[in-house]
Design a protein around this nucleic acid. Structure first.
Lengths: 211, 211
DNA sequence: CGGAGCCTTGAGAGCTGTCAATCCGGGTGG
DNA sequence: CCACCCGGATTGACAGCTCTCAAGGCTCCG
């Protein structure tokens, strides 16, 4: 971590935004109060001044899985800079105060960066998104539900998932042994929730892709 | 994902680097051949031309856990731009070809970005690092080992870990029920691997922090 | 034809999740 | 000042699920 900080000195992103941008809009949150919901148009990026804000996703089963917890002094929903909508719910884990900065103000402050940098930023943002999805999956304990969720996340709009590498690899990415993964697939097929068009091609029954 | 790509058009980071930077140094890898090792000084960023390259970390127990798999067309070790050393091993999962770009060349191409952008980039890189560590933890199946590894990752140099939030939260971050987490803590203490200085303060016996 | 790697299924054990109960400290209201 | 409540921390008992180990079929390739 030390070598990371060395380039800009001790100033974190949160400190930078706070000291550079004026007009951060303070907002008080009670415990369990929501800051925004998954699917809302992403208009602001936040800094947590005090308290804790949790990022959640909810599954079709109604279960909530937590993806991240932002502590005091940290930024929240930075990835929203590169997304039209929020991908998670944000809810206060305790009484908290956040500062809201509009995306447009941030983009203005960023100026007009060269596109190589933009590409790098977007690459990072997209990786964060992917990694969060993986964390979300790991928070689902049941193998069947985890596999189903993964298929929903990876499905194209027509509900088809085609893997380009061995199922063993997918199993490992899911945190399952390949045996457990195979069993989940056959169980889901037996339940009629998926159809196996081919060894590595699966059709999701009933619902298309999820974001 | 569509909204992400829209800002720079269809060009991914890998394509951008390939088309912008000359002098990408091609390198052929046999299956199971290592590209670099954890702890090596990070000198290059890579693009996978064909094949698959896996990022691994190895635990003190000797077990390997996989953190990421880079497919053809993807970048590899971009986060090394912000780190002095590689944090993982990289090993080819099949016969592969990669292009190597030196960090210095990339930094030159980036120009001299304003520090707000640098802060944003480093924030992202550090988040990716944190998320990868979480994935690494989830790939450890045994609760005791997972908890021990988490403590090693979070320990200060003197081997002390102090949590600033309820242990229940830590348990959830680890993907364990709080009961399982408590039991692991008492088991590790019984084994003499940790000492509980206080409810939320733990001393790691024998080894300090790990990176 | 033989081997290697992936896919698949079976049987059993171990570990963790679940449910339940207790203790404890802090905050609140009477 | 005390009774009460609430949430975190802790421990016990048990069931269930996944991991482990094992074996067989399959395809691809030498």
């Amino acid at each position: 971590m030390a070598q990371i900080e060395s380039r800009v000195g001790p100033m974190s992103l949160a400190e930078w935004i706070e000291s550079t941008l004026v007009g951060g809009h303070p907002q008080r949150l009670e415990t369990n109060q929501y800051l925004f919901f998954q699917g809302d148009t992403a208009q602001a990026v936040y800094i947590v001044i005090s308290g804790r804000v949790r990022l959640l996703r909810h599954l079709s089963s109604g279960v909530e899985v937590s993806v991240h917890t932002a502590l005091a002094g940290e930024t929240l929903a930075e990835a929203a800079l590169f997304s039209e909508v929020y991908h998670c719910d944000a809810v206060a884990a305790e009484n908290s105060v956040v500062l809201a900065y509009s995306k447009t103000a941030l983009w203005d402050a960023l100026g007009n960066p060269p596109s190589l940098i933009l590409a790098l930023l977007e690459n990072f943002a997209s990786q964060i998104h992917t990694l969060r999805s993986q964390i979300e999956l790991r928070n689902i304990r049941s193998a069947n539900e985890r596999v189903l969720r993964m298929l929903q996340l990876k499905a194209r709009n027509d509900g088809v998932v085609a893997f380009d590498r061995p199922l063993k690899d997918i199993a490992q990415e899911l945190g399952l042994t390949h045996e457990a993964f195979y069993r989940s697939l056959t169980a889901l097929a037996a339940d009629g929730k998926i159809m196996r068009l081919d060894e590595r091609v699966i059709h999701l029954v009933g619902r298309g892709a999820v974001y």
